[in-house]
Design a binder for these strands. Structure first.
Length: 274
DNA sequence: ACGAGCGCCTGTCGGC
DNA sequence: TGCCGACAGGCGCTCG
């Protein structure tokens, strides 16, 4: 499911709470239940269950698509992958069918990791860099400049779709927001990264940040039955819109496969130069 | 260096 | 109605 805007939305609701569920900040973890062993990437289940209990939640951060829940003595890193979501609710609720990990707090609440497709992963570590150290630039960071992006684009010769999906380059974009970004920047997804001019790189930089900010302001996108949080799907320009007229020129949106992923673009607005 | 193909999983949807 | 393939907000691995 989630890309940067959806993960950021989870981060904010864990931190601030929302209707019906409180913030998890300051809560004490009494114990944990692991319901699908492979959810845990590190450490081994026994050690995890023993180490996590008795720790307080001291913060909730994000790096790319990873959630970082700071505890008193270590950090809980959660990657939701395709179908994960986090739920804060009263412990008396019947547990969901796809709950994979539950943290029970010392008060009436729990944090549940719901994960239909079982791809999501959780780490408990005192050295977050060993897990997320490979990630690239944070696209909304203050110090992420158009010039930095231009240099990075020219350090490789990748198709833009591959470039933007590669978390070692820029961390946080997935299939929806790469297509939306490229549409806004009027760049073809198969365009080679090192052929962009300064102006084109600047346009890509601006488009990426606009798209992500707008999505965050709408609590992300909910495009099917999986995630029902946000509203941004109403504003998508190309993703999942094969055959629909381009908003700018009315040309039907095309769908192709790049990186084994459906890739949507306007063949007129996003031409591929020789 | 680059990218194709596949595996990991459960569920939905459309075609026949 | 039932079956079957295609497809889904991700990513790590192998291979050429």
């Amino acid at each position: 499911m989630p890309e940067l805007p959806e993960v950021e939305t989870f981060r904010r609701s864990l931190l601030q709470g929302e209707k019906g569920s409180p913030s998890i900040l300051g809560k004490l973890i009494r114990d944990a239940e692991l319901l699908w062993n492979r959810t845990l990437a590190f450490p081994e289940p026994e050690e995890f269950l023993e180490r996590v209990q008795g720790q307080y939640v001291t913060g909730v951060g994000r790096r790319g698509k990873n959630l970082l829940i700071s505890l008193s003595r270590s950090t809980l890193i959660i990657h939701l992958r395709m179908s994960g979501e986090l739920i804060v609710e009263e412990k008396t609720n019947p547990p969901g069918k796809h709950y994979r990990l539950i943290l029970n707090f010392s008060d009436p609440y729990r944090l549940a990791f719901n994960n239909i497709r079982k791809f999501g992963r959780v780490w408990l570590t005192s050295n977050p860099d060993s897990i997320i150290g490979h990630l690239g630039l944070e696209p909304l960071a203050e110090d992420f400049s158009p010039e930095t992006l231009y240099q990075l684009l020219h350090s490789r010769s990748r198709q833009l779709k591959y470039f933007l999906l590669d978390q070692r380059m820029i961390a946080g974009l997935g299939n929806i927001y790469t297509d939306e970004t490229l549409y806004r920047a009027r760049l073809h997804p198969a365009r080679r990264s090192n052929t962009l001019s300064q102006e084109e790189a600047h346009s890509l930089w601006k488009s990426m940040r606009e798209v992500l900010r707008e999505a965050i302001n709408n609590q992300g996108s909910s495009i099917d039955w999986m995630y029902q949080g946000g509203d941004y799907q109403k504003y998508l320009s190309v993703y999942n819109l094969e055959g629909k007229p381009c908003k700018r020129c009315q040309t039907p949106i095309k769908r192709i496969k790049i990186a084994q992923r459906s890739t949507y673009f306007c063949p007129k607005c996003q031409p591929l130069p020789e």
